[in-house]
Design a protein around this nucleic acid. Sequence first.
DNA 1: GCTACATGATTCACGTGTCAACTAGATGTG
DNA 2: CACATCTAGTTGACACGTGAATCATGTAGC
Lengths: 161, 161
Amino acid sequence: MGTAPSRRLPTSEELAIWRAHIETFEIVRARIESRLQQDSQLSSGDYRVLLALNEAKGKALRSSELAAHIEWERSRLSGQLGRMEKRGLVRREPCAEDARGARVVLTEEGSRAFRASTRPHLRAIKDVFVDAFTPQQLAHLGEAAAAMRSHLNLDAAPDQP
Amino acid sequence: MGTAPSRRLPTSEELAIWRAHIETFEIVRARIESRLQQDSQLSSGDYRVLLALNEAKGKALRSSELAAHIEWERSRLSGQLGRMEKRGLVRREPCAEDARGARVVLTEEGSRAFRASTRPHLRAIKDVFVDAFTPQQLAHLGEAAAAMRSHLNLDAAPDQP
DNA sequence: GCTACATGATTCACGTGTCAACTAGATGTG
DNA sequence: CACATCTAGTTGACACGTGAATCATGTAGC
């Protein structure tokens, strides 16, 4: 099922849409990240880690669970946690069940920083992203993202042989 | 003119669209860049610089013209050019009219690399991006990008007092 | 138990981005 | 001409991302 993708190159209109889309939303991402940084001294990486830990039972996760949850490479997470630990946002402690592993624990300070960042961050998303569009356009964007995810076969069950 | 942006936070639907959009198109960008790297051993930064130089008269530009053209910070361009020069894609030569400046010249090798990269790169854009959508959806994406550009006041004349 | 392999996590080298400081040549004003 | 100031470009410190290599611990097969 599905139509065969045509073998031609993109037209100049298609190319222009690609370029406009990627360049524009790159700026959007940068603006929202910059607001997060200014408002809360957090990078988007910090925020993502704090969000995941905050939702976790006991505000702690095994490092590899965390990596899987936010879909990051392990080495990426390792570096990120190192920086966050230096700033006191998280703590790493040895894991009782598996001496190889580490539990990543949200500190009180990390928890406070996350709670304080949420509202202004959501606000920035509203101001910069949501308010740019009509409800129609926003719905179209949602559909486009869904179409893309299906095109790329994301959303597929992650552990299939 | 224009409706006042409401002061409420984004709804969970709006937030979901934001997250789906940014995460999905981050993956799209990564895939297309990875194809460019595999097909042509070029990063997207390399490609952008080569594209600009290739279009320039004499396949050369002053460093600051180049920076302005592709809208990069000067230090970013400086580092990029250093790496590209090491690989033989561009050459920097002193500038006759202004001894401070440098002319960035596309080398024969850089020109060849760019020409060889174009088709596979366009092909990747078609495969990964364009073919994910119906023509309607693609048009909607173009409109969304335009709405966002206008929301952010991009497209404004760059040199207004 | 011992060897082989799988797994959790870190480390290293490198490419890449930002911002602030710096160098050196241009320019404008007395 | 002397001085302040502007401009072109580089450099350095740091944050961040990737992939390969490394190290230690777990687990399976004998």
